[in-house]
Amino acid sequence: MTDQRQTPDHLLRRLLGPAGPELGCEECFELLDVYVEAELAGADAHGRIPGMRAHLEGCPACAEEHDSLRELLSAAESTPLPA
């Protein structure tokens, strides 16, 4: 329900959602791996996959999965697989 962290500004943003074009959940999942690798490589992930950033702003579940994949890869990268 409308809890403490759901401030009026935050609530308004969530009700209205991102304004620009955005991907759907299926497209987001299809491209999530490419997007996260581009982010971690310091490449222009948003330019490469337009609409992904907007979708991640508008969809909390996809945003959580994005954050998880990014953290998993970062953790794996910091201690590479043994040869």
Binding site: T2, G24, C25, C59, A61
Partner: peptide
């Protein structure tokens, strides 16, 4: 948005897909 039910949970309860629900949310917004 108001109750913060996760989209996959709501999809399961309403017997639909996450993608279809997000499309509805997107159109409403």
């Amino acid at each position: 948005v108001l109750a913060e039910v996760p989209i996959d949970v709501l999809a399961e309860r309403l017997n639909t897909t996450r993608g279809a629900l997000y499309k509805t949310l997107h159109d409403a917004r």
